[in-house]
């Protein structure tokens, strides 16, 4: 896995999309799931909203009809690295491509009042931080004119306009994965022997699970 970086502060421009239930089909439409790569999805993020024409995998944004009404096509949000949205962001399909597209575009933090479970998990595997705030806090941020926002990973706080400050909760071990870019497979293989022992016992007790081997 690529080490995403060791910074504990993420500063930047906040783009907001004022919608509930943004599903992973919107974050990246099915067409682009045909890629067999883990990178290169930046031009397809929010494809259905970002462009006026129908895209295909391999066609870059320069060849597309841009929807200038959409926030990520407007300055300075083309450079956004923080995304603000409403409830249940990333619901629906398990496609990790949704997180890859956000990451490839440069989004490092997504702020919402809740997230789809599978999407939330996928974020931490790819260096994207999902921040959960209350609905009221989200409403406040939408109303405030956010200039630059700063997100601190060690103190678990977001701050902007010198006046607003919110604390958020996220499990330390998940945060650590983002900060250190740790690989789960390597970490789990340290417990190889535990897994083997468990498996041996299971084979004895529940042989039918292994019947076709």
């Amino acid at each position: 896995m690529k080490v995403i970086g060791n910074e504990l502060q993420i500063k930047g421009i906040v783009a907001s999309i004022d919608r509930d239930n943004i599903d992973t089909d919107q974050i990246i439409p099915t067409e682009y799931l045909k890629s067999i790569k883990k990178f290169g999805f930046e031009d397809y993020l929010f494809d259905g909203w970002r462009y006026l024409d129908d895209g295909k995998l391999g066609i870059s944004k320069n060849e597309r009809k841009i929807n200038h009404e959409f926030v990520l096509n407007q300055e300075p949000f083309t450079q956004a690295n923080i995304l603000l949205t409403r409830d249940n962001f990333g619901c629906g399909s398990s496609r990790e491509h949704a997180v890859w597209a956000l990451r490839d575009f440069g989004i490092r933090v997504v702020i919402a009042s809740s997230f789809g479970d599978i999407f939330y998990n996928n974020c931490f595997k790819n260096g994207v931080l999902p921040v959960k705030l209350s609905k009221d806090q989200i409403e406040e941020i939408f109303k405030a004119e956010v200039g630059e926002m700063s997100v601190s990973l060690d103190s678990k706080k977001i701050e902007f306009n010198n006046t607003y400050q919110y604390e958020f909760e996220v499990e330390d071990n998940l945060l650590e994965r983002i900060v250190l870019g740790l690989d789960d497979v390597d970490m789990t293989l340290k417990y190889k022997n535990d897994i083997k022992l468990f498996e041996e016992l299971r084979k004895k007790e529940k042989p039918w699970i292994y019947a076709d081997e």
């Binding site: 496609r95 990790e96 491509h97 997180v99 599978i118 996928n122 595997k125 789960d184 497979v185 789990t188």
Partner: peptide, 10 residues
Amino acid sequence: MGIGTSEVEH
């Protein structure tokens, strides 16, 4: 349950 691609590898 459904899982992401990193977890499929895992």
